[in-house]
Design a binder for these strands. Structure first.
Length: 878
RNA sequence: GGGACGUUAGCUCAGUUGGUUAGAGUACUUCCUUGACAUGGAAGGGGUCACUGAUUCGAAUUCAGUACGUCCCACCA
């Protein structure tokens, strides 16, 4: 035995050295050449932290696809990178500065803050890249991209200027979502709505100059000071007499008009609505329609502004309590009830989002939505799994609203708009260009520099949407060889949660700037949950650490674990035990290697081993391999990676290890036929190749352990085999069934595996069994012979229409025999009855396809033969 | 309120255009530590395919409805 192989597979060192080897050989590096490209851009992880299990799943899926393509004649290029993640990262950096250094953002200048942010990016970007490496991802490290790289930054600015000039970007005051914690505007997509148990307050407003009151209901009494009207439905008779009247807003005693609008539902609440145009989107629209003034009673940080007159400087939630208390004291609070409602929260800071009127930059989306809709409905971009996401995608695009892209932050691409002291502005990439444009557009000379740049940065997704283009410098250097060769990319693998944020917008940008889809396929992975189905989160502590998992099980086992349980698009319940299964599989492979290595140097080259088992075993496994290779290719085409892996797993464990190796295994310390040995090495190598995209490390290791090699599995090209021979496969199944049936008979009849027995097969099946009889005999430890008649006193085993007689020197318990046979008989009679019922139905015979009817007739005949065989055996038992 | 998807063994899931008395992994039961592997081997039990109805010779599969679940979207105070 080769003593250099450890008892169990030890992944740690093997993984380290193979990754280094692949890198050193440059296998992951890609340059345009004559081969067809297979391009994948990584969804750039945010530089806010470390990779979680969702990333692990995505990266693993991508690596499988990329490695498979690389081994299938493609020039595979997988671009790694990371995303500056504007608001998310800025929030983390601000938090870190306060906690660790005691520095407030307000104490820093913009350049000082950026320095800290870049330090943060270096640190976390580095951690992420290390994890990607440990997982075995075959990314091209020469192409690492970051969404704030100089060229990338320039691309974003260029696109902004271009879209502004095309009239697709505009600046204006609109009601937007405001995050009072980060103190920035947000896009609609960055707001998450959650059901909240709140209160509904009923407050009465006095009609001016009367004793009459109108009661309104509100969830936000702290905004009463911003009321500029009360609105009722024009058809509501209760309020018809109030036309032209005014009403007094409590707390501030302001006189405002009573207005009439269909918008108000008379049946809801009291049928009267307070109108606060500054703090509610509906009220804002009503205000526009009726020409109402807008009183903004909140500051950017969520405290009450001077315009509120009361509770000034108080936080909005404190002010709510104070307002309620005062209304109650005044006798204006009519009643208060529990109310369940939905509130918008900032996705990044979790602050309650405030609707706020503010001057921001927007992208006009109708134009882009049409582009993105067309790309998918035409089938140019294919979504997997289609059924689940196509409808969502379409609905969103059909109902899209303009995209607010300005953020009141520092970490990101600064908006290239330039203002003069009068508030006039131009959009230009640089200050010099801006000055020129001021001359041109406003006829004002601002040189030397008297203009200032917009303080705001762009939404992080306004840079991410260029990812598949600008990682190849397609915006900054259009038409360069890389973009021409690698674009469009082949497949995007990502989570379904960013379908709107990112996927749809990349399609828009691709159509706009390349006039072409950014990718052919989109493969959505599900969310990774724990085994109880809960989301993985830091607070629950149920999110495993990737490096720790790799440490415990090895990267191959982790890849196996996450892939084996993840059908496309479905959420996957992750549990350590699936990694354990992967580790066990490693070990199985390792032990198969050990077995084969034991044969090394013990080959008989003189043909002296005339074991009749061998030809069939070798032939059969070759056919199985051909069959599975074809199946796996089909599964790849449908992105059914989980099933592809299961198929390969079963081929290796069941067909190769449990059947094939057992069939060709020589006796203890016996030599092996050289040709069989060579074939076995070849098969084993092919299996490793088939498995390599899923489990790259151990397969490469075993490939090299099996023989002296001058090549590496990593880049070994798949070969196309001949289609499998069905008759050989059928004979293999018959053999397996016979082995199982005879072993079962041994167990049931208490015959130990070592007890010698004779298995007699009826002569009429000789041709069928001749090639496999030797294997059968060996596997069930029996002498096999062919007989014409039933063997008296033997155990009868019925398999299909075939009878076997198992005779031994030991006494046979006929009771057990009888019981088993009766059970079989019952089953087959039931089966026969169902077939006869079908065939007895004239309409079945008349309507069903002829081959279906023939199949049923054959089933009937077989069942009858089986029953006859069993009955005969029973008769023999007496 | 609108929409999408799902419901198959204890658990996680396959099941291709309707056609063997429905499969896999895992868990479970029994037996086996000979000579690759107990991280293993052999054998086995376990499901009225959510429910109701329709179409059909035939339905896990097609259609309609119901229930339950998951997710997305929506400005009702």
């Amino acid at each position: 035995m080769n003593t250099t192989l450890s008892k169990n597979y030890e992944p740690g060192q093997v993984e380290e050295s193979w990754y280094a080897h692949w890198e050193q050989k440059g296998y992951f590096r890609s340059k345009p050449d004559g081969r067809p490209p297979f391009t994948v851009v990584i969804p750039p992880p945010n530089v806010t932290g470390v990779l979680h299990m969702g990333h692990t799943l995505n990266e693993t899926v991508q690596d499988v696809l990329v490695r498979h393509a690389r081994m299938s004649g493609f020039n595979a290029c997988w671009v790694p990178g990371s995303d500056h993640a504007s608001i998310a990262t800025e929030a983390k950096v601000v938090q870190m500065l306060e906690k660790e250094k005691g520095i407030k953002k307000s104490e820093l200048s913009r350049p000082e803050f950026m320095k800290y942010a870049f330090e943060w990016k270096e640190k976390y970007g580095g951690i992420i890249y290390h994890q990607i490496k440990k997982l075995g991802c075959s990314v091209d490290w020469d192409r690492v991209s970051f969404t704030m790289d100089d060229h990338y930054y320039a691309a974003v600015i260029k696109v902004f200027v271009d879209l502004y000039e095309k009239g697709l970007i505009y600046r204006g005051a609109r009601m937007i979502n405001w995050d009072p914690s980060a103190q920035t505007a947000l896009s609609d997509e960055e707001v998450e709505y959650r059901d909240i148990q709140g209160h509904l307050y009923y407050v009465r407003y006095q009609v001016t100059g009367t004793d009459e009151y109108i009661t309104i209901a509100t969830q936000r009494p702290e905004t009463i000071m911003g009321d500029t009207a009360v609105c009722v439905n024009p058809t509501d008779e209760r309020y018809a007499h109030l036309k032209g009247k005014t009403i007094i807003v409590p707390l501030v005693n302001r006189e405002v008009p009573i207005i009439f609008d269909e918008y108000v539902d008379p049946a809801f609440g009291t049928g009267a609505l307070k109108v606060t145009p500054a703090h509610d989107i509906n009220d804002y629209n009503l205000g526009l329609k009726h020409g109402l003034p807008t009183i903004d009673t909140l500051n950017a940080d969520g405290t009450l502004s001077a315009a509120a007159q009361v509770f000034v400087g108080m936080d909005r939630f404190e002010a709510r309590k104070a307002a309620v208390a005062q209304l109650r004291a005044e006798g204006s609070l009519v009643k208060e009830e529990e109310y369940s409602t939905r509130l918008g929260f900032s996705q990044r800071t979790n602050a309650v989002v405030e609707p706020r009127i503010s001057t921001q930059w927007f992208v006009q989306m109708r134009h882009f939505a049409d582009l993105a809709l067309e790309a998918v409905t035409s089938g140019e971009v294919k979504i997997h799994p289609e059924e689940r996401f196509l409808a969502t995608y379409k609905y969103w695009l059909e109902n899209i609203k303009d995209w607010c892209i300005s953020r009141q932050l520092w970490w990101g691409q600064r908006i290239p708009a330039w203002y003069d002291a009068d508030g006039k502005f131009v959009v230009a990439a640089t200050a010099d260009e801006a000055i020129a444009k001021f001359k041109e557009q406003h006829n004002i000379d601002h040189s030397p520099l008297t203009i200032r740049q917009d303080e705001d940065v762009l939404d992080t997704w306004f840079s991410s949407w260029l990812w598949p283009i600008e990682v190849f410098n397609g915006i900054t250097q259009p038409g360069n060889p890389d973009i021409n060769y690698y674009y469009p990319t082949n497949v995007l693998v990502t989570g379904q949660d960013i379908i709107f944020f990112w996927v749809a917008r990349m399609i828009m940008a691709g159509q706009e700037y390349k006039n072409q889809r950014p990718f052919e396929h989109v493969y959505f992975t599900g969310m990774v949950r724990d085994k109880q189905g809960r989301k993985m989160s830091k607070s629950l502590g149920n999110s495993p650490d990737l490096l720790d998992l790799i440490d415990r099980f090895g990267a191959d086992a982790v890849r196996f674990g996450i892939l084996i349980s993840s059908p496309a698009g479905n959420d996957l319940l992750f549990d350590d035990s699936s990694c354990e299964q992967g580790r066990n599989f490693n070990n199985k492979l390792w032990n198969a290697l050990k077995l084969v290595k034991m044969w090394e140097g013990r080959q008989a080259t003189d043909g002296s081993i005339a074991d009749s088992r061998l030809p069939f075993a070798v032939e059969w496994f070759g056919q199985r391999l051909a069959q599975v290779k074809a199946q796996v290719e089909d599964l790849y085409k449908g992105f059914r990676l989980s099933e592809a892996l299961k198929t390969v797993y079963s081929l290796i464990w069941d067909d190769f290890c449990s059947w094939y190796l057992e069939w060709v295994k020589p006796g203890f310390e016996q030599p092996i036929d050289n040709a069989v040995y060579a074939k076995t090495i070849e098969y084993f190598s092919e299996l490793m190749q088939l498995l390599h995209p899923f489990m790259p490390f151990i397969t490469e290791e075993i490939y090299h352990q099996l023989a002296e090699r001058t090549d590496d599995l990593c880049v070994k090209q798949f070969t196309k085999g001949a289609p499998a021979d069905a008759s050989v496969l059928a004979q293999g199944s018959l053999l397996q069934d016979a082995i199982s049936a005879l072993r079962d008979a041994r167990v049931k009849n208490n015959l130990k595996p070592k007890d010698p027995v004779t298995a007699s097969i009826q002569t009429d099946a000789r041709s069928q069994f001749a090639p496999i009889a030797a294997i059968l005999g060996k596997q069930v430890n029996a002498e096999v012979q062919f007989v014409d008649d039933a063997v008296p006193g033997a155990i009868t085993v019925v398999l299909g229409t075939q009878k076997f007689y198992l005779s031994s020197e030991q006494a046979v318990d006929t009771g057990v025999q009888k019981e088993q046979l009766l059970k079989d008989l019952e089953y087959h009679r039931g089966f026969l009855a169902s077939v006869e019922k079908k065939l007895g139905n004239e309409r079945f015979v008349a309507n069903a396809k002829p081959d279906v009817v023939d199949a049923e007739r054959k089933k009937k005949k077989d069942a009858e033969e089986k029953i006859e065989a069993i009955e005969k055996s029973l008769a023999l038992l007496g």
